[in-house]
């Protein structure tokens, strides 16, 4: 599963990077925004109130956003762990940080309590989401571009990317070394938007106390820093079903993917 997931991530990152460079060189009119599901959410208000799309967003963004909601209702934040190119790059970057700075887990230098993490996640990401949506809906423009790490990273110096945009990206990368995947955990507006659909998500990992030796390897392997070893089921809306925990678990059958119903 790990190899398959890495293959998904590499393919998406390569496709988006090539799209960005081709557009920047004038070889193609397809921008990296075309397939971004977050654009679907950004344009939703204009679509409801004026029956028109916002700025460069279009029907593909909206359709992909709706499909993403469906995926999230079924498989939690699988998009973040399997598809999101920014999530992939930040995960690889976080792994590098872990190795260089010898962190034992994806928490990095700061290991907040679960409660603190949840509060921070909710507050910070909701503020970012509210600010982005309010600005987009008020102006009818995708004003977030110059601040959006996805756009800055992959657009090959696209429209609206300023020199200070690279400071934002550099800052997030520096943060991502010290606190692996800090953007995904604490700031990503799409992560905030998906949470209500992800929390009741159908698929979930279940830990079998009969098999589990409580070694904690799953906790350290989880890119989202979820406390896998202390719950019976991972019901967190943050789980990306990346299967890093199952790969790290030394006991076969201790962690299994489950859907409601059937045999317990």
């Amino acid at each position: 599963m790990r190899r398959l997931r890495t293959a998904f991530q590499v393919l998406v990152v390569a496709a988006v990077a090539v799209t960005g460079v081709r557009h920047a060189l004038g070889w193609s009119m397809t921008t990296i925004e075309k397939y971004c599901p977050f654009g679907g959410l950004e344009t939703a208000y204009a679509l409801v109130t004026r029956q028109k799309f916002t700025c460069a967003a279009g029907e593909l963004n909206l359709a992909l956003f709706l499909a993403l909601i469906l995926l999230t209702l079924l498989a939690r934040k699988a998009f973040c762990g399997w598809v999101c190119p920014l999530g992939a790059v930040l995960e690889w970057w976080g792994r590098l940080g872990r190795r260089w700075l010898r962190f034992s887990s994806f928490d990095g230098w700061w290991r907040p309590s679960d409660r603190t993490r949840k509060v921070l996640q909710t507050v910070l990401r909701s503020v970012v989401l509210a600010a982005v949506l309010a600005a987009t809906w008020a102006t009818g423009e995708l004003v977030f571009r110059g601040y959006d790490p996805y756009y800055i990273l992959f657009s090959a110096h696209g429209h609206d990317v300023m020199f200070w945009s690279y400071f934002i990206l550099g800052g997030l990368l520096a943060l991502g070394l010290a606190m692996p995947m800090a953007w995904c955990k604490y700031l990503c507006p799409l992560g905030a938007a998906l949470w209500p659909a992800s929390k009741p998500g159908l698929l979930r990992l279940r830990r079998s106390p009969d098999h589990c030796t409580e070694c904690g390897a799953c906790d350290d392997a989880c890119p989202q820093s979820l406390p896998v070893s202390s719950v019976m089921e991972v019901r967190s809306g943050e789980c990306t079903l990346c299967f890093e925990c199952t790969a790290a678990c030394p006991v076969a059958g201790a962690l299994e993917l489950r859907a409601p119903g059937g045999k317990p």
Partner: peptide, 22 residues
């Protein structure tokens, strides 16, 4: 109910296809 892990990438692909086609 136990679900094989490959369900997750399969759902990812199905939903992506649904979005592109829809």
């Amino acid at each position: 109910m136990r679900v094989p892990p490959w369900t997750v990438p399969l759902l990812v692909l199905l939903c992506a296809a649904l979005g592109l086609a829809g």
